[in-house]
Design a protein around this nucleic acid. Structure first.
Length: 205
DNA sequence: CCATTGATCCCCT
DNA sequence: GGGGATCAATGGG
């Protein structure tokens, strides 16, 4: 996290819009450890993935559509999509307006609003699994397609520091599966179990 | 390992 | 406007 990304002062530690108005690959690792609040739940981000328009694995790769419009809009907003007929996943949009890019929020630790998170995720769900996985995180934060486009600047603030960031290939994709644009907090238990896409080409030795 | 589930998009008519 | 493939996943064997 660069010092310039955070505002100082009382109630500080808030991330401003310029933080998001950069390359999503740059923004992604800096999101780790930050706190995101929505609908009465706060999550500390532990795992993210970068996507951008010149990337075959990105929803924005084939150009702007009704579904992906928010990826092309101003930075610092939500891009929420529906997938596999049953799950929502959430991204924070990045880059200059007109360039489709975002960071997928893959996992986090619920640090506030545990009751609300449990009510959405299920009373019998293990604490560790409340937001461990992109669809789980979106559900814990109460997000669905109706939240697409919501401005999140002001709902993201600094958390603790003093961890190391690890990087590796992204999960669940078949294209550009070798690009190390997945970032996570090394050793954190609130990181999703890594699963390569079944049809992704085998990794080189 | 595999089923689930439906929106979205491409490409053709 | 329709057929068919795809899909940034999860949960249960």
């Amino acid at each position: 996290m660069s010092a310039a990304a955070l505002s100082a002062g009382p109630g500080g530690g808030r991330v401003d819009r310029s933080f998001f108005e950069r390359d999503s690959v740059k923004v992604a690792p800096e999101l780790l450890g930050l706190l995101v609040t929505a609908n009465g739940v706060t999550v500390r981000l532990t795992e993210v993935e970068a996507y951008r328009q010149d990337d075959p694995a990105s929803h924005s790769f084939r150009g702007r559509t009704a579904r992906t419009a928010s990826m092309f809009g101003p930075a610092g907003h939500l891009y929420v999509y529906f997938t596999y007929g049953m799950h929502y996943c959430a991204n924070l949009t990045c880059g200059p307006e007109g360039f489709g890019s975002a960071v997928l929020l893959r996992a986090g630790e619920v640090v506030d609003g545990i009751e609300a998170a449990r009510a959405r995720r299920g009373e019998r769900v293990a604490f560790r699994d409340l937001a461990r996985g992109p669809a789980r995180l979106a559900q814990a934060l109460g997000w669905d397609r109706g939240d697409d486009g919501v401005d999140m600047v002001g709902s993201v603030r600094a958390g603790g520091t003093g961890f190391s960031v690890a990087a590796g290939p992204r999960t669940g994709i078949t294209k550009a599966a070798e690009v190390p644009w997945r970032f996570w907090i090394d050793g954190d238990v609130f990181v999703s179990p890594y699963r390569r896409h079944p049809k992704a080409p085998p990794r080189e030795a």
